[in-house]
Every structure is written in structure tokens, then in C-alpha cells.
């Protein structure tokens, strides 16, 4: 068996160390090693966006990143978004707009939306749709998700 890799990184603002196999994806590390199960596995090959996380400010599918690549980097996951007593405005907007049903795609959509609003606080509806095109949802019909992101943009900007 290959030697495990020691990784020192920052996740949601906290210093984290872990051991992972060289071939383990970041998604596997998050879910199976660190037990952060907010990022979901929908396809495991970058097509559904359910595993979206923000790596050094960039939106990525964690199933397409290796766990070992996190060394020295900074990761944001859905678990770090809300304050203890206060949801993030994007989360609030998703609840108010009923932008979720079964909810399994929701963390991915929220992280994708955050990455968008971090770099473009006032996106047009077209920009929101274009940006979220890499996230799939089989329940909501997307309309309310787009509206939620529009609302969140108003609140945060």
C-alpha cells in the first residue's frame, strides 16, 4: 500500500492536519477522513457540482482535486459558512425562497453562489444562471435557486 501523505492546510479558517492516500480525492478526504459530509458525491467526475467547495478563492469540484493538493492552501466548505447563531445570507435566501427540496444538491449550490458573489457582488440573472450551470438539481426546477442568489446579492452587497 502506498505511503500516506501528511497534509497541513486550513479548512474554514482553522488549521487542519490529516493523512491521506496520494490518490484520494479531496471529496473522499472531506467525507471519509474528516467526516465533513456537507459536500456530496453525485457523480464523482465533475458533472454535477454537488461536491463544490472553494479552494484559495476558486470554486472547484472536490471530486476532481486530490486531497494531497490541499497542502498549504485554504479551503472553504459548507460547514464553515454559517456563524454559530446566524446563517449566512445566501443560506437565509435559499430558505426564504424555498430554493431546496430534497436538499442533496443544496450545499454545492450555496458554495457555488458564494464563490460567485465573492467575486461579483452584483451579478445579472444571466451571470447567475451561467455560473450555476455546473450544478445539477433534480427537484427544484432551479427558478427559486436563481431568485435566492439574486436576493442574497441584494443583501450582501
Amino acid at each position: 500500500m502506498p505511503k500516506k501523505v501528511h497534509v497541513q492546510t486550513t479548512i474554514n479558517g482553522e488549521a487542519v492536519e490529516y493523512l491521506c492516500e496520494p490518490r484520494q480525492s479531496l471529496l473522499e478526504v472531506l467525507r471519509d477522513v474528516l467526516h465533513l459530509t456537507g459536500a456530496k458525491e453525485g457523480c464523482n467526475n465533475g458533472n454535477c457540482g454537488a461536491c463544490s467547495v472553494i479552494l484559495d478563492g476558486r470554486l472547484v469540484n472536490s471530486c476532481l482535486v486530490l486531497g494531497a493538493e490541499l497542502e498549504g492552501k485554504s479551503l472553504e466548505t459548507i460547514e464553515g459558512l454559517a456563524e454559530p447563531e446566524q446563517l449566512h445570507p445566501i443560506q437565509d435566501a435559499f430558505l426564504e425562497n424555498a430554493a431546496l427540496q430534497c436538499g442533496i444538491c443544496t450545499p454545492g449550490f450555496i458554495m457555488a453562489a458564494k464563490a460567485l458573489l465573492d467575486q461579483n457582488p452584483n451579478p445579472t440573472e444571466h451571470e447567475i444562471r451561467y455560473w450555476l450551470a455546473g450544478n445539477l438539481c433534480r427537484c427544484t426546477g432551479y427558478d427559486k435557486i436563481v431568485r435566492a442568489v439574486q436576493d442574497a446579492a441584494q443583501t450582501t452587497s
Partner: peptide, 16 residues
């Protein structure tokens, strides 16, 4: 909703 939007909600896939 809040559990789902924060990643706390546990689906079968999340059971460890």
C-alpha cells in the same frame, strides 16, 4: 431547510 443548507442533514450517503 436549515439542516440541509448548512450541510448538517445526514443522508444515507453521509452515514459514517
Amino acid at each position: 431547510g436549515a439542516d440541509k443548507a448548512t450541510g448538517k442533514a445526514k443522508y444515507t450517503f453521509d452515514i459514517n
